[in-house]
Design a protein around this nucleic acid. Structure first.
Length: 178
DNA sequence: ACGATGATGAAC
DNA sequence: TTCATCATCGTA
């Protein structure tokens, strides 16, 4: 399936976060290519979202969030963990989606560790050239398969903390009882 | 429940 | 230059 590019990401982060569920995160290391279905995301959107790094203006760390959609934003936190985000929205409008979990790997720090993603990917385009990209899945995700919750670890963010900007692809393997 | 572990940004 | 904070995780 096709590589997702700028036009997919140039929208508001919550919409992109939801649309990413069921798509494939693809990692190429050497000659080995692995695909992982995206099952959990979080949106960080705009100047006023107090949970977002961008809420205190542009800084050296977060400047990629203000740039063109479709770039990776990878940052270091807690002295040991790397977090993988994809930049969204229009140039000048800071937003990004944190990829928190893929099939078989749950947790944003576990994900980057397992796939060998580091700050070296920061500001790189999500493309084959960077060895890390996203491909469209053929199958449609019905909205009833998506669970929305508040974001994790942002209790400090006041009223922004309870926005339901975390999107989870619920277990589809169950069939309706009948 | 808590410590690991270091970059970041704001204050001074 | 110092300091509190941090989009987490493993061990207890």
């Amino acid at each position: 399936m096709g590589v997702l590019r700028h036009s997919f990401f140039a929208h508001k982060a919550p919409n992109v976060a939801r649309a990413l569920l069921g798509q494939y995160l693809v990692r190429k290391r050497g000659k080995n290519v692995s695909r992982y279905i995206i099952i959990e995301t979080e949106a960080y959107d705009g100047f006023h979202d107090r949970a977002s790094h961008a809420s205190r203006g542009k800084t050296p760390r977060n400047e990629v969030m203000f740039g063109k959609a479709g770039q990776w934003y990878v940052y270091f936190v807690y002295g040991m963990h790397e977090m993988l985000n994809i930049v969204c929205g229009d140039v000048g409008y800071p937003s990004a989606v944190l990829i928190r979990a893929v099939g078989g790997i749950v947790g944003p720090a576990r994900l980057t560790k397992a796939l060998g993603i580091t700050r070296a990917h920061n500001k790189k385009l999500a493309s084959r050239a960077s060895g890390l990209w996203i491909e469209r899945s053929g199958t449609r995700v019905p909205s009833r398969a998506i669970v929305r919750t508040p974001r994790v670890g942002v209790a400090y963010a006041g009223e922004w903390a309870h926005k339901k900007w975390r999107f989870i692809l619920s277990d589809t393997k169950r069939r309706p009882k009948g």
